[in-house]
Design a protein around this nucleic acid. Structure first.
Lengths: 225, 225
DNA sequence: ACGTAACCTGAATGTTTACTCATAATAGGT
DNA sequence: ACCTATTATGAGTAAACATTCAGGTTACGT
């Protein structure tokens, strides 16, 4: 959702330690409130209430409700990006096999979404975001796809010629399915471990699949040289 | 989202032809309005406006805004179910191969979501649904998983022992990814055809994969240096 | 200890919303 | 042509909401 202009920067940035803590409280409260009520029903008064501050204080640091959502989303983008790079670092350093790498990736993303499974979706899909933020979300995902593609290049069993497209599909699949699982864990047929294994299996099968042949014996447990 | 009680049935059901048409107009308008504005910002007045009827007329047939959403969702569930069964019918009758079957399935689901890509998500995730409807959505998905599993049993190259779990993962993957693609087609690296092919490839690879291990440790030490 | 900038308060404001109701128009049977 | 159930109207109502503001309280430099 993209929509019209609105103040996003606070008139007064927090200066003292007290007010920095207040801003953190507000953001934490907003995350909780949006998570449980959605964007529209997550009222500013409820947020202020839960944060233990008055509504006036909230508007001292955030010029609008939308600004709070944007701040939360920007924070989430940075977290995800950091996590992805940590993962790549580990994989390169410890020379895990493709299967282990995928398993680790899925596990990490599932963990990320387990805390507040709905928040990300609410911020991206229910909130009227300014164009700038919408672009940032897109770019973050494309960067992720490139990063994953870069890692996949290290594995010889990955035979895709269009690595970036494969990376994009991997990222989107993991993003969607872990999100879904985290949001409704008790409505699933599989246990958490089973889910991670199945998803990693699917990705491994896809990535090490050589197209023309009908069925193919995988090279199990293969490792990078 | 699940929430408190509210009237869902109209006091007066439509009797004459005129009013049946009106009810259809209202539902069509509601689909459009929810699609573009989301649930909360999709106001009943806007819906009545777009339907070309007065707000009073709308409340003659739908006792609440929520009732409109529920009606739309129920209609969607029925459509999806019908489509799935048609697909299974075709596959069984024409004895397509696994690859062709998956290709067809993905294509059909992508088509289903191309019309109003956001509507389904808005109804399920943004709308406070009564428990009954929420259950119906879940059941529909589990039924779909069973149906797919039944079809997969016909293909010898599918080696999964837990067919229903595999079916569930297939359904969820297709649901999530086609939805995503339909909602943001111009933000994708791949063309529509390419996307369908890649997704079908991934599913085929997963389903015909003979697994090297039962399970796997996520931690380091899985590969000798 | 004092002054002032930073910080906090919450009642008040104007807008938006779902929903009601008294009344008017219309269709279809007789 | 007439009668009545059905269908349509839209101004009006109460509640909920984001945001403002005038006036308090607290921390910090000096």
């Amino acid at each position: 959702m993209t929509a019209r202009k609105q103040r996003l920067e606070p008139i007064k940035p927090p200066v003292q330690r007290r007010s920095k803590a207040t801003v953190d409280e507000i953001l934490a409260a907003a995350a909780q409130v949006f998570e449980t009520h959605g964007y529209a029903a997550g009222t500013t008064n409820r947020i202020a209430d839960r944060a233990g501050v008055s509504i006036g204080t909230l508007y001292q640091y955030f010029p609008s409700k939308e600004a709070i959502a944007v701040a939360l989303l920007e924070r989430h983008i940075i977290d995800t990006d950091r996590r992805l790079h940590e993962w790549v670092g580990h994989m390169v350093a410890e020379r895990h096999g493709l299967r282990a790498a995928l398993h680790d990736y899925v596990t990490g993303m599932l963990e990320m979404h387990s805390g507040r499974p709905r928040l990300q979706h609410i911020l991206i899909e229910e909130t009227p975001l300014p164009e700038r933020v919408h672009k940032a979300v897109l770019e973050a995902e494309q960067t992720a796809a490139k990063t994953v593609a870069g890692l996949l290049r290290l594995y010889p069993e990955v035979r895709h010629t269009q690595l970036e497209q494969a990376g994009s599909l991997v990222v989107q699949t993991v993003e969607s399915l872990t999100h879904r699982f985290a949001a409704h864990p008790d409505e699933q047929l599989m246990s958490r471990e089973r889910f991670i294994n199945e998803l990693a299996t699917m990705l491994e099968a896809y990535l090490s699949y050589s197209r023309p042949h009908k069925s193919r014996q995988p090279s199990p447990g293969s490792c990078p040289p």
